[in-house]
Design a protein around this nucleic acid. Structure first.
Length: 802
RNA sequence: GCGGAUAUGGCGGAAUUGGUAGACGCGCCAGAUUUAGGUUCUGGUGGGAGACCGUGCAGGUUCGAUUCCUGUUAUCCGCACCA
């Protein structure tokens, strides 16, 4: 009889063997077929690894281990996205340097990942806070700057009152800071910006060339928010200026009954002498600016606004005079900050018109009475009351209207995006310094490449400041420098980069992590790119994933990388929830610590459980009983050593089963169906146990198939069985399609589509014989006239009788 | 409000060119082993006495629907006055 299965001995033993033998070290051997598997590198927080981390890591570890056994040169790397606020905040509170905090956290994370037996190539470990790494983050920034894609702009930013830092639009959720939940206010500051908007079209088009799960593509497209429409100039009565608007419905121009400008629109101040109710406008503006973005959208239903007394506009298509309003339902940040209002065919305009008792003119027929209900369907409507476009479809009317506008020089076709430029400055210490100096003579000047990396200086205090300056601003020795251009006195930029900077290109560095001359050699990039399979959280779809695609596409345009898209395939894992079905959190008291599971049940059990828990892309609740079930499965595997026979080959009665299992497991591991792959292994284990013995070949195949999921126990059993070498260096088994089919099949016999009985027949039986056998099995249950007989080979016989 | 997804036993979940619903695991029941509990092993386990009924709900197409179509409800995620 075997010794009891003791994971505490087995697991460290094999982890050491893999380390000593450098089992998962990967060379840039350009002669072999490559496979680049990537998981999002973690932020090494003070809490240590969460049970959510192993889900994606194990999934791609399975694929990587399998692909290695299939002869691929597999790159499966790991590193640390280590700049960021929590580390800095912890450092401030505990008076420890953020660098030390990072080192401690990384050490803990690394030990935890190591204890899970992942096949990462630790020789390629990277850390975004290492100057040898951020050297190239800064280098990419210089490239962006030199290409005119990084610029400084005075603009209102999202200022987190608690973190004391500016946030990108993507980091503000419901008007509060995504990270700490504190209120976000607007603050005008000079910020570094990246022109991601210039890449909006390329980022949309690129989606057609990659294999991402659909919801990721949809979310990215929506976030970029491309819309095609037109800009139209409306004259202001008795004035030189035109009021330019953006619309996607230029076909409805004849239905315009008023206009609206945003409270921040410059036309207001310019014409304040003409606006008789100026004080009312000022009050409204005051009120609107006090509302946070959150309140503004909360109150979306209830429209407010002020009519500009003394100003009006002229509709260019029919010369009608129309009033102008100011209202906060129009945003300065989209389009031109002014709109033409067509209450009959726009919901917001309709609400507003009802509230202010404005005329509603139907110009697209097809709806109900527009006085009572807005009509917005563009697919079926026909233009009415619309002069030269009356009778046309919406689509044709738009085309004709744009021709008309361009011809008369009062408007033109125009594409707009919801995507905004990326606010790239952070007023923090723990980030990459921006390699720019400001010189009074030369303006903003890039550092020379040879002066990179620009290292973070040691500072006394990294406390954020209330005035919005970075802590670096207090370091006068560091700030005062000379201009690389004219040699005169200059000041360094004191803002640092956001956390997204280092993670926007890290997958490039893994291909050649120690390169001193470039971010990676062209040969390494050519060989390894694109990443074949990238898995990460849905929460990064509009942040990290979009940003890194932007940087990559830019580097492609610069000739630095060989592919336009960085990731060929993108998948996403579901969250692991607490036992009660809620998100794990300290306050809910439902947190599971992976260390405890590894300690009590073992890494192989944790890995198996997290893969067996359910569909990979859906959220799943933790279940202690489920963990125990997986442990029980591995113990049953452990006992296979007791029934191992001396026979070679696969026994006749299990041959079909083995071919089926190899087929199923091989495809399930590649298709995110780890749960059913493991279920197939459980099934064949049950068959073997029932039979009471296992041949050597059967044992080998079983261990290889299970190895990617449970690498430690399978190596141990391989060794106990006295097989040559190690599991990780074996060849993945093949199956014979012909042998996956049983000689006999059980087929269902139905009357009128309802199951009555089943019969077992040869797989090669012909239709007539099958139906005859079916009728016989039915016996006198078959009554009435037979109308139709249906036979689906190997599946079903259906007798239709009346 | 818009966009996306999900809905199957007591529980997690299987099953799609439409073809035996409930694989696999958990839990539960019975038996064996054990002084006993636990472990382990064996058998059973959607409901119903049964004809039959069962995949959120109501219809439809079909010989046959968890799967396709129409409508509807609930939950989750993302976006949210984007003109």
């Amino acid at each position: 009889m075997s010794e009891p299965y003791n994971h505490k001995e087995v697991e460290p033993k094999w982890q050491k063997v893999w380390d000593d033998k450098k089992a998962f070290h990967v060379d840039n051997d350009f002669t072999k077929p490559k496979f680049y598997a990537l998981v999002e590198f973690p932020y090494p927080s003070g809490q240590g690894l969460h049970v959510g981390h192993p889900r994606p890591y194990t999934a791609l570890d399975i694929v990587s281990r399998k692909r290695r056994m299939q002869g691929y040169n597999v790159l499966y790397p790991m590193g640390w996205d280590a700049f960021g606020l929590p580390t800095e905040n912890y450092a401030i509170q505990n008076h420890i340097h953020p660098k030390t905090v990072t080192e401690n956290n990384v050490a803990r994370f690394k030990a935890q990942l190591h204890s899970l037996g992942y096949s990462f190539d630790w020789d390629r470990e990277i850390n975004t806070t290492d100057p040898n790494y951020y050297h190239w983050t800064q280098w990419i920034f210089l490239k962006l700057f030199n290409a005119g894609l990084a610029y400084k702009s005075e603009m209102p930013i999202n200022w987190c009152t608690s973190c004391k830092v500016g946030l990108a639009n993507e980091e503000v959720v419901n008007g509060v800071c995504e990270r700490c939940g504190s209120e976000v206010v607007r603050k005008v500051k000079s910020q570094w910006m990246l022109k991601i908007t210039e890449y909006a079209d390329k980022l949309i088009e690129g989606l057609d060339t990659v294999d991402y799960i659909e919801r990721v593509k949809v979310q990215q497209r929506n976030w970029i928010g491309k819309s095609n429409g037109a800009e139209v100039d409306f004259s202001i009565k008795d004035a030189e200026d035109k009021l330019r608007i953006y619309t996607t419905r230029c076909d409805t121009l004849f239905g315009v009954t008023y206009m609206v400008v945003s409270p921040e629109h410059p036309i207001l101040d310019k014409y304040k002498d003409r606006i008789k109710n100026w004080q009312e406008v000022v009050d409204y503006r005051e009120q609107a600016s006090k509302k946070s973005d959150f309140e503004r959208s909360e109150l979306a239903k209830d429209k407010t606004g002020v009519r500009l007394d003394g100003m009006s506009a002229i509709n260019p298509v029919n010369d009608t005079e129309i009033p102008i309003f100011v209202s906060d339902y129009v945003l300065m940040s989209y389009g031109t900050g002014a709109i033409m209002a067509v209450p009959a065919h726009d919901e917001r305009d309709w609400d507003f018109a009802k509230k202010f008792d404005l005329p509603i003119i139907e110009v697209v027929a097809g709806g109900k009475n527009v006085q009572e209900e807005v009509y917005t369907d563009v697919a079926t409507g026909t233009l009415v009351n619309s002069g030269f476009i009356t009778g046309l479809s919406v689509e044709d009317a738009q085309k004709k209207m744009i021709e008309f506008l361009e011809d008369k020089d009062i408007g033109c076709a125009k594409t707009n995006y919801k995507l905004r430029d990326w606010v790239f400055s952070r007023q923090r210490y723990w980030g990459e310094p921006i390699p720019i100096v400001h010189c009074d003579k030369c303006g903003y000047v890039a550092l020379n490449e040879k002066d990179l990396p620009l290292k973070l200086p040691e500072v006394e205090s990294y406390m954020p400041t209330d005035n919005g300056e970075s802590p670096l601003a207090a370091m006068t020795d560091w700030v005062n420098t000379t201009c690389p251009c004219c040699g005169g006195p200059a000041k360094r930029e004191t803002d640092t980069m956001p956390q997204w900077a280092g993670s926007s290109w890290y997958f490039l560095r893994y291909t050649d992590p120690d390169n001193k001359e470039a971010l990676a050699s062209p040969e390494a990039l050519k060989y390894w790119l694109p990443v074949d399979w990238y898995n990460g959280g849905m929460e990064h779809t509009t942040l990290h994933l979009l940003y890194s695609r932007f940087w990559h596409r830019f580097l492609y345009d610069q000739g630095v990388v060989p592919t336009p898209e960085p990731y060929q395939k993108r998948t996403s894992h579901g969250m692991i929830l607490g036992e009660n079905g809620e998100k794990m959190s300290k306050s809910r008291g439902n947190v599971v610590n992976p260390d405890d599971i590894v300690n009590e049940f073992g890494a192989d059990t944790l890995r198996t459980y997290e893969m067996f828990i359910g569909a990979f892309d859906l959220a799943a609740s933790w279940s202690e009983n489920g963990v125990k079930g997986c442990r029980r499965f591995l113990e049953r595997v452990w006992k296979l050593q007791d029934i191992l026979s001396d026979e070679e080959g696969i026994s006749a009665d299990l041959e079909t089963k083995f071919h089926q299992t190899i087929k199923k497991v091989s495809s399930d591991y590649e298709n995110l169906k780890y749960n059913t792959g493991i279920a197939a292994l459980m099934t064949i284990l049950n068959d073997i146990a029932k039979k009471g013995s296992i041949t050597k070949e059967e044992f080998r195949i079983f261990l290889i198939l299970l190895n990617p999921v449970a690498p430690h126990i399978t190596e141990e059993l391989w060794s106990i069985a006295g097989f040559d070498g190690y599991v990780f260096e074996q060849t993945w088994p093949d199956y014979d399609e012909a042998k996956t089919v049983e000689d006999t099949v059980e087929i269902a016999v139905q009357i009128n589509g309802k199951l009555k009985t089943t019969i077992t027949v040869s797989k090669d039986i012909d239709k007539d014989a099958a139906i005859a056998a079916g009728k016989e099995a039915l016996g006198d249950r078959l009554t009435g006239n037979i109308v139709k007989e249906i036979y689906v080979p190997g599946r079903i016989i259906n007798i239709v009788a009346k």
